[in-house]
């Protein structure tokens, strides 16, 4: 027993092995840190230049006859993106206000409303849209790509993008009145 200890064998851990261990540990911690960072991040913040995305639209809810829209198409207009779902109870609180806001701003051609239907089934989505008489363009969030980009935390959430394509305001949770929407959109329209 004493013999094996007194015979000098390998001393300590070879440097390359230490390097591997530390790189491995650092990698592991880095992944967890990135995950944590992601979990802690909220939605994307105002000031963020929103990159282009494609939204296919439900038939009957097209935009100027197009069955698919790109955010890029609306450069120069204020874009209001509303995330909702038919199974979402709080969404129902704001549905009528959003529609009224659309009726007010839509005709001016200055503002576009887009309803993004977050993980939903089309038949139920249609029932919901009909129930609240919604007419602005609406389409499914295919494979949750758009909601993942905005890092939404739930539905409803509404994002206001200005004429330059920069996010100006984020509403988490439902609107309580038409006034509330106007208070956000009007200053954005005034900004030339």
């Amino acid at each position: 027993m004493t013999e094996s200890q007194s015979t000098p064998q390998r001393k300590g851990v070879p440097l390359w092995a230490q390097a591997i261990i530390w790189v491995f540990l650092a990698g592991l911690l880095a992944i967890v840190a990135m995950g944590l960072n992601r979990a802690q991040q909220g939605t994307i913040q105002p000031g963020h230049a929103v990159s282009d995305f494609t939204l296919p639209l439900f038939s009957g809810y097209e935009y100027e006859g197009k069955s698919e829209v790109h955010l890029e198409d609306f450069r120069g207009k204020v874009v209001v993106i509303n995330f909702w779902a038919s199974w979402c109870k709080p969404c129902e609180q704001e549905a009528a206000d959003l529609q009224r806001a659309w009726e007010k701003y839509g005709p001016t051609g200055e503002v576009v409303f887009l309803g993004v239907d977050y993980v939903d089934t089309e038949p139920n989505a249609r029932i919901y849209l009909k129930k609240f008489g919604i007419t602005y363009p609406n389409g499914p969030d295919v494979a949750t790509r758009i909601s993942q980009y905005f890092r939404i935390k739930g539905v409803p959430e509404t994002y206001f993008i200005d004429r330059e394509g920069v996010l100006q305001y984020v509403q988490v949770g439902p609107f309580s009145s038409l006034q509330q929407i106007e208070n956000i959109v009007d200053p954005m329209l005034a900004d030339e």
Partner: peptide, 23 residues
């Protein structure tokens, strides 16, 4: 279930899941 955390669709009790099962 696309909106719940790690719940298979057959046992998920929410209204949304019921809709998916109907789908």
């Amino acid at each position: 279930c696309p909106v719940c955390e790690s719940t298979p669709l057959d046992v998920c009790p929410t209204e949304a899941c019921r809709q998916w099962r109907e789908l």
